[in-house]
Design a protein around this nucleic acid. Structure first.
Lengths: 348, 348
DNA sequence: AGCGTGACAGCAAGCGCTTTCTATCTAGTG
DNA sequence: CACTAGATAGAAAGCGCTTGCTGTCACGCT
């Protein structure tokens, strides 16, 4: 019923081998023969059988991209950039590859299961985006899985994620600590002394690093941090809204709120406004990531820009073997402080 | 080197057939045997070879999701919902499926090529999201491709996209026309008579339908539309910014601007502010989609909410055969007008 | 004229799994 | 107790493609 290589071969009066070679183009085939084959392919409307081809050749053209939340532009932007470089149709890369975007939802089990699924598909490469989960057993399981993938010839690249030791994985890590520190230094420079911090979920590297940067800046400035000034939440707007109200309840004298990321910062802004506070006159707000909407907030958000698209593109190229891995397999990608309207000197 | 089914069989002292059956669980296997096999799988760290399995069984567990722009939350939200229902790891669905999110970038060729790639992989189902491109040759090619996919047993679902006649594709269509109309009626009700419209790219069904709704409302109100009041652009913020400046240049007396979607509306707001105009006192602004950030705009955006997540979830279930297709294979999904702060009565 | 040499094309052996058909064994039945 | 139905397990035939190896020619060289 379905057209196979053999059918094409018969029609073109050549052997299946020849058809295969024409299609893969890695073996000399006379121009006239090639033409005949291509015509047959066209006439029969032949479509290669991917699984069969993958099985015989022991390789596949699937590339996995793991993201925490595909609905979040932070991941969407990286995924998009990675995918463009992977060279799906229209990409500059030669062979047409299928990018498989997998949504882990931040769940450790899913992360692992997806990796197994990709391993099962004999994926050509896998790119993991976003922070890692800091759970000892899970980290061990991940490392082991990544090692196996690497051993099986799958190229593994971590994009915006800390290195995975004892693994062949290439890591392009965001300097969350440095960015967090710079951001808080900016606030301190403006004269703020009482800063609330809305952190992301615990046991996430991203959360921890940004928070560490923040605390390092405080410490360097000789400020004793009040434990009440830190609240943990999710990486979304809602969480930012609630956390801000909580922060305000705990200490109404705060003059600045630093958020785990831009979405959280937006929620913080909303909460402040709803509490009758002006930004930045009464309270300054800062975000992280510099997602596209941040500049449109009113006032526009002071934040740390992470080169998401660039990092994704680079990760994609490395995954495809079109760019050399950084020395040591690790590269630290710095963020850039974007000072905008949401931060100003403290009131009074 | 790599562990195969046969290795597991040898270790468990059973035939490969039995191992396969244990793994697929669709054939009776004695409990003790099953256990022995599972132990062997575990000890050998065996991972099924996806391509081989797909080849032999003539089916695969890949499900394609086509989106225009994965970095755009509009698509991200739908993709996320679809994927959750597809039942990747952790999903309620039984078999573990791999969702393949394909980024077409709005390019017709890529759309087609991705479909071929999915066809090649013998995808179990394909969900196409977002509006279609209104180019006769391309539409024909798409229909033909979708027909072939359908004939090959791949379930095809259109989510937020007009029906594809002569195809087995199930369509969950957004009522863009109705939403557009309602939105403009709201503005007219407030007393606006000179409305600018920032449309999306031409030759897109979404663009056309929303615009048609807008015009229908104007016509019903007996307003002659000035051709200068419509500008076409892309579906992004930047485009909204520029288009608004252009609109203002063409007719500074406009009292309202209707945007093709929320991102464009945000750009419009920025342009208005930069032009020294207040929203909504001087000019009202309306968006479309009600993406999460819309409520955080200042003032918050009046827009038409599209149940993106619900539609995606439903599309996912239909694609998996877990929900019946709507009668006639077509369902119209209505939007809901969300009146918020960005629209008000015209000045004066 | 004889022959080495490319340039192509074909043969055939798998790749690792699924599944039909068949064989075996146990337990239930008259 | 002979016999049959039901429950498992195995043998083996592919699934559609790739690729190493083996021809077969047509040239051009000595």
């Amino acid at each position: 019923m379905t057209v196979t290589l053999a059918d094409v071969a018969a029609r073109a009066q050549v052997s299946p081998a020849t058809v295969s070679r024409v299609l893969n183009g890695n073996y000399p085939v006379a121009a006239t023969t090639r033409e005949r084959v291509l015509r047959a392919v066209d006439e029969l409307d032949y479509v290669l059988n991917g699984p069969a081809s993958a099985l015989a050749a022991a390789t596949s053209d699937l590339v996995g991209i793991l993201v925490n939340d595909i609905a979040d532009p932070f991941f969407g932007i990286m995924a998009s950039a990675i995918q463009a470089e992977i060279g799906g149709p229209g990409g500059r890369a030669g062979g047409e590859r299928l990018a498989v975007v997998c949504n882990t939802g931040g769940s450790p089990e899913r992360e692992l299961t997806y990796l197994t699924l990709l391993q099962r598909q004999r994926a050509a490469a896998v790119v993991l985006t976003g922070g890692a989960i800091e759970d000892e057993p899970h980290a061990t399981a991940m490392a082991s899985k990544l090692r196996k993938l690497g051993d099986a010839g799958t190229r593994v690249v971590l994009c915006g994620r800390p290195p995975a030791p004892d693994t062949r994985a290439i890591a392009l890590t965001f300097d969350n600590r440095g960015g967090g520190r710079e951001l808080t230094e900016h606030l301190l420079g403006l004269g703020h002394r009482r800063l609330g911090y809305i952190a992301g979920p615990e046991e996430r590297t991203t959360t921890r690093h940004r928070l560490e940067g923040h605390r390092a800046a405080l410490e360097a400035a000789g400020i004793d941090e009040d434990p009440r000034w830190t609240v943990h939440g999710r990486y979304d707007r809602r969480s930012g809204y609630e956390a801000t109200l909580e922060l305000l309840r705990r200490d109404p004298s705060l003059t600045a709120v630093v958020a785990a990321n831009d979405s959280v910062a937006l929620g913080a802004c909303a909460a402040l406004r709803d509490s009758g506070l002006r930004i930045p006159d009464d309270v300054s707000v800062a975000g992280f990531d510099d997602l596209p909407f941040s500049i449109d907030a009113v006032p526009s958000l002071t934040t740390v820009r992470l080169p998401l698209a660039e990092a994704g593109a680079r990760a994609g190229r490395i995954a495809m073997g079109r760019e050399e891995a950084p020395p040591g397999g690790i590269a630290m990608i710095r963020g850039e402080l974007m000072v905008r309207g949401s931060t100003g000197g403290p009131r009074g």
